[in-house]
């Protein structure tokens, strides 16, 4: 077991973890934060996306011990309020636009979108690499492609993100 400290949604947790434990399993199995989902456990679906030190990351591929000293924001903390009762504009837009069906990819989509909106720089579809491109639907689609949605809610996800970004 290894000792570590993690700041999760604003509160500091002192933990003793098996070095094999992923950040995802730590959140879900130890801290009761089951909002973050496990879809593949291999970085391939994005359901586990959290903000790790402010940047979106796949919690399934992060070893918890390697996150010692880090700050994590999960879907539960996205809105800022600890009780999740102050919805983030993305959360509101997702509900309004019906940007999910089963809801299982949704927390990952939301955290990914929040992280994505804070990112600067080009993407694979940006024509001129020297500019920070405007957030067109094409840019959103490329940047959100690390989050699979088997229900096929992409059209509404893109619309919701556009709306929240306004």
């Amino acid at each position: 077991m290894a000792e570590m400290t993690l700041r999760v949604n604003g509160s500091v947790r002192e933990l003793d973890v098996d070095p094999r434990t992923s950040l995802l399993d730590l959140l879900r199995e130890r801290l009761g934060l089951t909002g973050t989902k496990k879809g593949c456990d291999h970085g391939q679906c994005g359901a586990c996306t959290v903000l790790l030190d402010g940047r979106r990351a796949n919690a399934c591929l992060a070893l918890a011990v390697a996150c010692d000293g880090s700050e994590v924001t999960t879907v539960e903390g996205l809105g800022g309020a600890a009780d999740g009762d102050e919805p983030h504009p993305l959360q509101t837009a997702f509900v309004e636009r019906d940007a999910f069906q089963c809801g299982y990819c949704t927390p990952g989509q939301l955290c990914s979108a929040a992280g994505m909106l804070a990112e600067r720089g080009p993407s694979a579809v940006t024509a001129d690499l020297t500019d920070d491109p405007p957030l067109t639907p094409e840019e959103i689609r490329e940047r959100m492609s690390g989050n699979l949605c088997r229900c096929g809610a992409y059209v509404n996800i893109v619309a919701a993100i556009q709306e929240a970004a306004r």
């Binding site: 790790l52 979106r56 796949n58 990914s112 940006t126 492609s145």
Partner: peptide, 10 residues
């Protein structure tokens, strides 16, 4: 930029 996803690249 053509590799993996935004999360993985981070």
């Amino acid at each position: 930029l053509s590799g993996a996803s935004g999360q993985v690249r981070n």
